[in-house]
């Protein structure tokens, strides 16, 4: 248990090298990969997320913790697959067609990975078909659409409509400066994230079936 606690604490401090070493040690000691993931890495990220929500720490601290999370996951991934431990889920993300801005989307991607999601980042200027194809291919639970321009946000509705037309189970979350909760409802999206941290919370809820 102390080892798992150390993993969580090292992750909270953003110490990727130590997390990698401790996770390796935990695996060598025979601890189940699922326990290392849930009681070590995800437990640590939970603390970090709460501290960020309370504004006790800032975005760089979260991202450092996320980097430490990746370092641990690098060790764990083959074992998790071997043991059949489910991941948090897969999320397909991208900036919609016509929109070349991707800072916000990148931030959401980094934080989703930090929360344990598999992220398929399609980049920017992504056509609706590419979102839907990627979601179908990866079995994504969630599709995340980003837009910075009022001129491109209308494309989000095209993606939502196409998801429904194809009969995909993937839920759609939208975000970006011109987007709002009301807009998300209008176009039939399942959720709206008002910033990266909020987007992660919403994606977790969507992936859990909420």
């Amino acid at each position: 248990m102390d080892l798992l606690k150390s993993i969580a604490e090292s992750l909270e401090h953003g110490d990727d090298e130590r997390v990698h070493a401790l996770v390796t040690e935990a695996v060598a000691a025979g601890l189940p990969a699922g326990d290392v993931l849930n009681q070590g890495l995800i437990a640590g990220m939970g603390v970090v997320g709460e501290q960020f929500r309370l504004r006790e720490i800032f975005l760089p601290d979260v991202l450092l913790a996320a980097r430490a999370m990746y370092a641990g996951l690098d060790v764990l991934k083959p074992l998790l697959a071997r043991d059949g431990v489910p991941t948090a889920g897969t999320v397909v993300i991208g900036s919609v067609q016509g929109d070349l801005h991707d800072i916000g989307k990148n931030l959401v991607g980094i934080m989703l990975k930090g929360a344990g999601f598999e992220v398929v980042d399609l980049g920017n200027d992504v056509a609706p078909e590419r979102f839907v194809d990627a979601a179908a291919r990866s079995g994504a639970a969630v599709i995340g659409l980003s837009a910075l321009l009022t001129t491109t946000m209308s494309v989000m509705k095209d993606v939502v409509d196409l998801v429904k037309a194809r009969g995909l189970k993937a839920r759609v979350i939208v975000g970006g400066a011109p987007v709002s909760e009301a807009f998300a409802k209008d176009i039939g999206a399942d959720a709206y994230g008002f910033d990266a941290a909020n987007a992660v919370d919403r994606v977790k809820a969507l992936a859990a079936g909420a």
């Binding site: 975005l59 991202l63 800072i103």
Partner: peptide, 14 residues
Amino acid sequence: EKHLLIAKHTRKHL
């Protein structure tokens, strides 16, 4: 890296 959010420079001077 496409961003400098966790760059050493950022962490040192933020």
